[in-house]
Amino acid sequence: MLPKFAGLNVQVLGISVDHVPCLKAWADSLGGITYPLLSDFWPHGKVAKKYGVLRSEGYTERAIFLLDADGIIRYIDIHDINDQPSNEVLLQEIRKITPERFLQKESLPQDETLPHGGVVMYCTQWCPDCRRARVWLKEQNIPYTEVDITTNFTAARQVRSWGNGSQITPTFDIDGKIILDFDEAALSKILLK
């Protein structure tokens, strides 16, 4: 479902009541999933309950909530549990919210090349350690290039390969030297000579 949303400033989240190791194993079995799979395992189904999609059997409906940039719900689809939601319908709904993105996307080639040289930080918008890393780099006055791996799939694959299969964010490529995670000591050693 993901490549179609690239370039549209869309963040996809999968949510289930499975526990984290189970989600990880499942993602691995699929060759890695770049968007976060969230575990609503404990307290069991707390978020699903908030959204009204927890079934009495203890797992959730197959449901889609589409939120705009302000966090307002713009579309809800609670699907037959055995049926797949349609990406086309979803794309149409996203187009209603951000038509300008679709125009941009159509006029832009998909740029999937990776920057090299200097400090390149592979990250996501939401990951807390990426945020800490941004603050730290700014404090040290270190210029850097950011690559959002939720929209650049070449980058996501590269990060997984550096992390031996784990998609660790942030991952740094500093003139060819790879640092996994926001490892302040390792970064200081290279950058604060």
Partner: peptide, 22 residues
């Protein structure tokens, strides 16, 4: 999340979000 980091929905403000319960 399965990517080892916690995610807070609020942090995604500014993006369109597709929440897919499965």
């Amino acid at each position: 999340s399965h990517l080892e980091k916690d995610l807070t929905l609020h942090d995604l403000n500014g993006k369109t979000v597709v929440m897919a319960f499965f």
